[in-house]
Simulated scan of single mutants.
Amino acid sequence: MNTSNAYNQYKENSVNFASKEQLLLLLLDNAVKFSKVGRQAIIEKNIKKSHENLKKAQNIFYELIATLDLSKSGDWGQSMVSVYNFIIESLIKANIKKDISIMDEVIPIIEEVRNTWTEAYKISVNSK
Rank of each mutant, 00 (worst) to 15 (best):
V15K: 10
V113I: 08
K122I: 10
V32A: 08
E63V: 03
F17D: 04
Y10I: 15
I107Y: 00
K49M: 10
K98V: 00
G38S: 06
Q58E: 11
L26I: 13
R114V: 01
A120G: 05
L28S: 06
K98L: 02
K128H: 11
E119V: 04
L27R: 10
K122N: 12
N5G: 14
Q22M: 02
S35K: 03
I96E: 03
E44K: 08
S79D: 09
S71N: 11
S4T: 13
F17Q: 14
N126P: 00
S73M: 13
Y10H: 13
I47N: 03
I110P: 00
S90F: 06
V15D: 15
K93P: 00
I47P: 00
I43Y: 12
E44P: 02
P108Y: 02
K98Y: 06
L25E: 04
R114H: 15
F86D: 12
L28F: 14
Y7L: 15
N85L: 13
E112N: 14
R39V: 07
N46Q: 04
L28M: 12
K20N: 15
V113Y: 05
S35N: 05
S124A: 12
L23R: 14
L28Y: 15
Q78E: 15
N5R: 12
K45G: 09
Y84T: 08
T3D: 15
K49H: 07
L70E: 08
K72L: 09
S14P: 03
N13P: 01
K49W: 07
F61A: 05
F34G: 00
R114S: 13
I60A: 03
N53K: 05
K56A: 08
D99F: 02
L91F: 11
K97W: 03
K36E: 14
V113S: 04
M103W: 02
Q58D: 06
P108K: 08
R39W: 07
M80Q: 11
Q22V: 00
E12I: 11
N8R: 15
E112H: 14
K45N: 14
I42D: 03
A94E: 02
I110A: 04
A31C: 13
I92R: 00
I102P: 07
I107R: 01
V32M: 04
L64E: 10
D29R: 13
V37K: 14
R39I: 05
I109W: 01
E44L: 06
V83Y: 05
V32W: 05
K56M: 11
N59H: 09
S71A: 08
N85V: 07
N115H: 09
E44W: 04
E111P: 01
S127A: 13
D104Y: 00
T118A: 13
K98C: 00
I92S: 00
N8L: 15
I65K: 10
I47R: 04
K20A: 07
S73A: 12
N30A: 12
